[in-house]
Structures are given as C-alpha cells and as structure tokens.
C-alpha cells in the first residue's frame, strides 16, 4: 500500500509540474510569436512590460481574465460553453503520454513521462480527433454565419489532413514495430542524428507530410482559412470573449506545442542528443537526467520557431487549393511512403 501511495503522490507531482511548465510554455509561445513576427516585419514587438517585454504574457492573461464575459442572447448556451472546454481539454491531454526525458526511475516511478501507454501514439491521434469538436461546436452554437463558415472550413480541413497525418506516422510505426512512444524514441537514441527517423530512418518524406498536415491541423498559416480575418471576421471564435476566447487561444498554441512535440518524438529522436555517444558522459547523475529534457525542449522550440517563420513568410492558400493539396498530393504521397517503407522493411527484415 505504501508503494501505491508513493506512486500516486509522485504521479500527482509529475502532472502538476508538467501542467505548469506546459501552460507557461503556451503563454510564452504567444510572446515568441509576437516578438518574431515583429522582427520579421522589422519592428520590435511587445517591449514595454518588463525587461524585453517578458512580462507581456502575464499582462495579457490578466487582461483577458478581467474582461467582461459577453454572451450573445441567440447562442445555444450549453454547447457554447462546452466548446472551448473541449478544445482546451483535448489540447492539454496529449502531453500526458509523451516521454520528455530518459526513463529514470525514482522509487520505481518513471519521472520523465506521466503515463507510459502501449498505444501512446494512438492516444495522441484520438485526443486530437476529439479536439475537432471544440471548433465545430463553437461555430455552430454561436449562431453567427462567420463562425459557422469558419468552423465548417476548419472541420473539413481537419478531416482531410488527419488522413495524411495518420498515414505519415505509419512508416515510423513500421520501422519501430511498436506504438509505444518510449520504444519509438529508444530506437532513435542510439547513434544521434544518424538513427533519427527523419534522417537515418529515411522517413524524410513522411516527416514532410507530417509537418504539412500538422500546420493544417493546428489551423496555422498557410492553412489558417478557418480564421481568415479578411473574410470571416475572426472565424469560429468571433462571438467569444474574455476567458472563453482565451481558452481557444490557449488551445491553439498548446496544439502547436503538441504537434511540435510529436514531430520531435516520431522523427527527430525525442529526448536523444543529436551527437549520440560521440562525447563521453559528463557531469553527475543530475546532468545525465536533465540533459535529455534540454534536447527535447530545444527541438520543440525549433518547431515553434519554424511555425512563426512560416507565418511571417507564406500567404494563405485558396480553399480549393487547400483541399486539392491535401487529397490529391499529400494523401497519395503518404500511401506511397507506407508502401515503399513496407517493401524495404520486408526485403531487409
């Protein structure tokens, strides 16, 4: 029983720490985006609140929290309230199955992953597919044509690109022979860059497909038609204000981090160092435990940087181009990748 109590306490501790870090990361991703887009457009971005504008997320949060919570009278109340909760809850769930460090046990509990699940990858895909309802219902329950158009676009886009996304990870699963995220990372953790799925594993095509589909899944530029402000006001969250709006906002940025983290785990070796065993271990057990976490965070950060960079660079797709690209290019490419990977694995064993 004592062992069980330790397990419960340590798990609660992990959940608390990961949630706090994750939410802070979400807040600072917003700042990162505003800063970087600012630099790309040759201006400073937020710089007044705190040193280098670093307290800006705090000020934004406070502002959103204190705003009046308007609810239009014609909305479908239960669903209108439920929609942002679904969106945020699903966005915050995926992190629970991701390993963010080496499997180091303390009192028999793995301290660098909240839950090690055999079908972890499927859990992430499942939670993402449920998250679509947040956006779909918000648009419908708002009783506003712009919201409805935004959510219809978003739903159609997510269904279309989820197929390509799901097929793109099959190559990685074939190579590993497991859906467990720890197994997937462990396979890539042997020889640094050379054993990462994207390079040594020759899943570079799958990586490209995943990345493109992930941009579409998170409704980011160049696939941000659901919130195209020039034609749809603000898209599906037009009628939302105060914390309900903030929940959608947080969900979007949390999803960016999720997608970056999954790409890191599947294609870029997760927590493994890019140098493999090139350098001997230095430092004590603490460095040995925390260095992988650094690599994981650094890789996710690169993805977030890429997101912002793409947003600052590319224009938006036209809607038929978006659908054509998803169905006629990405999907066949993903199927071809599965076939080729399967054949190569069958020949080489």
């Amino acid at each position: 029983m004592n062992q069980f109590l330790i397990f419960i306490l340590l798990t609660l501790l992990k959940i608390a720490v990961v949630t706090v870090v994750f939410l802070t990361a979400v807040a600072y991703t917003v700042l990162l985006e505003r800063k970087l887009v600012g630099r790309i457009q040759n201006r400073w971005g937020p710089s007044r609140v705190g040193p280098f504008g670093l307290m800006q997320p705090l000020a934004d949060g406070l502002k959103l929290f204190l705003k009046e919570d308007l609810m239009p009278s014609a909305v479908e109340r239960p669903l209108f309230i439920l929609a942002p909760i679904i969106a945020l809850a699903c966005a915050l769930t995926s992190i629970a199955v991701m390993p963010y460090g080496r499997d180091i046990r303390w009192h028999g509990v793995d301290m660098f992953q909240i839950a090690n699940i055999n079908v972890g990858l499927l859990v992430i895909l499942g939670v993402t597919s449920i998250g679509v309802y947040g956006i779909a219902l918000s648009g419908w329950s708002s009783n506003n044509k712009y919201s409805l158009l935004g959510s219809l676009r978003s739903t159609a886009q997510m269904i279309s690109y989820e197929l390509a996304l799901g097929l793109s990870v099959i190559g990685v699963v074939l190579r590993t022979g497991s859906l467990n995220l720890r197994d997937i990372v462990n396979l890539q953790a042997t020889h640094g860059v050379l054993s990462w799925n994207a390079f040594g594993g020759v899943q570079i095509v799958a990586f490209f497909i995943y990345l493109t589909a992930a941009f579409a899944e998170t409704n980011r530029t160049p696939f941000d038609l659901p919130e195209a402000e020039s034609e749809l006001t603000a898209g599906y969250h037009t009628e939302y204000s105060s914390m309900k709006f903030a929940m959608f906002f947080m969900a979007e940025y949390a999803n960016m981090i999720n997608v970056g983290a999954v790409a890191t785990l599947l294609f870029l070796g997760g927590w493994s160092s890019p140098f493999g065993h090139l350098f001997p271990d230095f430092g004590g057990p603490v460095v040995h435990a925390l260095l992988p976490v650094f690599w994981f965070v650094a890789k996710v950060f690169c993805f977030l940087f890429l997101y912002v960079w793409v947003r600052g660079t590319l224009p938006r797709f036209r809607y038929d181009q978006l659908m054509g690209f998803g169905w006629k290019f990405l999907l066949p490419l993903a199927i071809a990748n599965v076939v080729v990977t399967g054949l190569v694995l069958a020949v080489h064993g």
Binding site: G126, V132, Y133, A136, I159, E162
Partner: peptide, 10 residues
Amino acid sequence: SGAIMVLFVF
C-alpha cells in the same frame, strides 16, 4: 468518435 461522428456533425 473522431472521424465518423465529425462527419455526422459536419
């Protein structure tokens, strides 16, 4: 729960 019901709702 994901794909088919999203189509229903859609």
